[in-house]
């Protein structure tokens, strides 16, 4: 079918297709050399039992069968991770956009604020996790102290099975300045004359947001949705450093399970199977979102 279309295509369309493939060459090289091989190896390893120390032993689909029929930890990790995605994703999307709108105001001194909000996205690793442990310390932490003065008894945060997951979500929201930058770049692509025209028509700020900003920002929103979703599925460091998956496995994230299997239990076959299943889950979700995008994403050029 493709060949038939190719034959009937105009010389221009053919040239464009050739140019299209040429443009993908850098990515193709990287993909073939540094992605296909590792993925192939992972698929093979996922069908074996392998400690990394002795030769792998072929066991067919046993790892996958066990995962779906006889592994409560797999389901727990999946449940916790999906819960985290559902909790943090909408918050991050909305707050990131709100922050970006604020930062897009053309008023003096904005450079300073933009930098301040970006700082949290810059610090990474253990230092951040430790800092949050201090801030959310139930008795003496800053957050609960402030709540105390407001007449509220603060929760136990990371150390309460019900609050541990929201606490991790809170940490990721603090870093929202990073995604605000991407919204900010997206906002630059909305032509100013549209706003001027709307203002002349008497549209208020709220109406302008709903009728101009939001529709024209949907390509960026779509990008953020997919990226933040992938990111949320891969949440790991916070649980690894602070909660170790507890209490009562309330923060037992999927990648934490994967890490324990790969680097602590030396169960590389099973870990590979876990990683591949997660990839498929994210991929299916992305394809679904991509499918719905035709209904709500608006491209100026199409």
């Amino acid at each position: 079918m493709v060949i038939a279309r190719w034959r009937t295509a105009s010389p221009n369309a053919r040239r464009e297709a050739v140019e299209g493939y040429v443009s993908l060459i850098p990515w193709m090289i990287g993909f073939l050399a540094f992605t296909i091989i590792p993925i192939g190896v992972s698929i093979y390893v996922s069908l074996t039992q392998w400690t990394g120390m002795e030769p792998p032993r072929w066991i067919g689909f046993n790892n996958y069968v066990r995962m779906f029929t006889n592994d409560p930890l797999f389901w727990q990790a999946l449940k916790v991770t999906l819960g985290f995605v559902a909790l943090s994703l909408p918050l991050k999307l909305v707050l990131g956009l709100g922050l970006a709108l604020l930062l897009n105001l053309k008023i003096p001194g904005m450079n300073f604020f933009r930098t301040v909000f970006y700082i949290p996205a810059v610090i990474s690793g253990v230092a951040v996790s430790l800092m949050w442990m201090w801030l959310l310390q139930p008795d003496t932490g800053v957050v609960n102290t402030m709540l105390y003065f407001a007449g509220i008894e603060g929760p136990q945060w990371f150390w309460d099975p019900d609050w541990a997951l929201p606490s991790v979500a809170l940490m990721s929201i603090w870093k929202v300045g990073g995604s605000a930058i991407i919204y900010l770049a997206g906002l630059q692509n909305i032509p100013a004359h549209l706003y001027e025209a709307a203002e002349i028509d008497g549209a208020g700020a709220w109406a302008r947001f709903w009728r101009i900003t939001l529709p024209l920002l949907t390509p960026t929103l779509f990008f953020q949705l997919i990226i933040e979703m992938i990111d949320s599925f891969k949440v790991f460091t916070e649980a690894f450093v602070i909660t170790h998956g507890g209490p009562l496995k309330a923060t037992y994230f999927y990648l934490l399970y994967f890490y324990e299997e790969a680097f602590q239990n030396f169960n590389l076959g099973y870990a590979s199977a876990l990683a591949l299943v997660l990839t498929v889950i994210i991929l299916l979700t992305t394809i679904f979102v991509n499918y719905t995008s035709k209904r709500w994403v608006y491209y100026e050029s199409e």
Binding site: F31, F34, T35, P38, I39, S42, I226, I227, I230, F233, K234, L255, F258, Y259, A262, F263, A271, S272, A275, L276, L278, T279, I282, L283, T286
Partner: peptide, 11 residues
């Protein structure tokens, strides 16, 4: 896009 979804440690 899917190459972004694979946990890096596996590679």
């Amino acid at each position: 896009l899917s190459t972004m979804m694979i946990p890096g440690q596996i590679k």
